[in-house]
């Protein structure tokens, strides 16, 4: 076992360590301690779920993509169109959003995962652009550049109403994030997860071992797309509005940045990155509404230059130094 223990792998102990409960405790503390921050909080939870889905394919399976917003946006639009035209029940909406994004992930994955490296990167970009243009042009269905709104979500299970303070929305997002985290964790600690890491580290060797590389990649890509679709559906439900931005290249880029900021290939990087990035963005945008992008840019440059492995990478190095100091 090389590398930090909490990145997870088939060989390490799959039991949940006490530290791993920390994010959930913090999330619940935030719910009670900062009730006016819940709209932002829900958005952060959604982005964590989205980042988690990206971490699964980028961090573990090594699929480099700049087009993950396609599945997020597809899920968001499916949830919105469903709410406008069929039913505004949130749980059905999430299920349909997740399944249809998964289907799209499977179909596109079948095509693009035959490639690797730069070609794959270009193809993922192309898929996002195609989805974006379809949403932009199919105004009757998607509202085009005006976005799609004017629907009100029904209470969850007929009991919990979405409110202005986003209290329901926050817990709703937290619940789905928890399920997704459990699922991703199971995958990573399974033999399937180990084979993904193998593919990332040495494809030729996995082929030599007789591992069905392509099928494994398609499978994980489908799961990841479905999770991204769920995240998109959650965004639609909590804001009751969806705009073209959810399908944009910018969003894929921002997401990648958040994940790199937190640390790639280690589950909790997907938790730390969005929190730091979005809180920094929120406070910078408030203090300098005109120049806040500069602050974000500076932060990124510093992380890339001095903190390889993201914020969790720094934490690892610090812990290592402390341990060495003790012995």
């Amino acid at each position: 076992m090389t590398g930090p223990a909490h990145t997870g792998s088939y060989l390490s102990d799959p039991r949940v360590r006490p530290m791993e409960w920390l994010p959930w405790v913090l999330a619940l503390v935030c719910y009670f301690a900062a009730p006016t921050y819940l709209p932002l909080g829900s958005y952060i939870l959604i982005m964590i779920l989205f980042a988690l889905s990206l971490d699964l394919i980028l961090g573990y399976a090594g699929i480099i993509t700049l087009g993950h917003a396609a599945y997020f946006g597809f899920g968001a639009y499916v949830a919105a169109i469903l709410a406008v035209r069929v039913t505004a029940d949130p749980l059905i909406g999430i299920a349909v959003a997740g399944i249809s994004a998964g289907l799209l992930g499977w179909l596109t994955g079948l095509v693009i995962l035959r490639m690797r490296g730069l070609t794959l990167l270009m193809l993922t970009l192309a898929i996002t652009s195609i989805c974006y243009e379809i949403a932009n042009k199919a105004t009757a269905l998607t509202g085009g550049a005006d976005g799609l709104g004017g629907f009100n979500m029904k209470p969850i299970l007929g009991l919990f109403k979405f409110d202005l303070f986003n209290k329901t929305g926050y817990l709703y997002c937290l619940l789905f994030l928890f399920v997704a985290w459990w699922l991703v964790r199971r995958i990573i600690y399974s033999p399937f997860g180990a084979s993904l890491t193998g593919i990332r580290e040495n494809v030729a060797r996995m082929h030599a071992l007789g591992s069905p590389v392509y099928q494994r990649l398609v499978a994980v890509y489908t799961i990841s797309a479905a999770l991204a679709g769920v995240a998109g559906g959650l965004l639609t439900h909590t804001t009751e509005f969806v705009g073209l931005k959810v399908l944009s290249f910018d969003l894929s880029g921002d997401l990648l940045v958040m994940l790199i900021l937190g640390g790639v290939g280690r589950i909790y990087g997907a938790f730390v990155g969005p929190v730091v990035y979005l809180l920094a963005q929120d406070s910078l945008a408030k203090q300098f509404p005109e120049y806040w992008y500069f602050g974000i840019g500076l932060m990124l440059v510093l992380v890339v230059m001095f903190a390889r492995g993201g914020i969790l990478g720094i934490v690892d190095r610090l812990l290592l130094r402390i341990r060495r100091g003790n012995t």
């Binding site: 006016t36 709209p39 005006d146 804001t239 509005f241 945008a285 509404p289």
Partner: peptide
Amino acid sequence: VRDDAGANPDNAKRIAQELIVR
């Protein structure tokens, strides 16, 4: 003062929600 970064309705809605609530 808050920035909506262009025609970006869901983001704008969240910002408005924060302005109202927070």
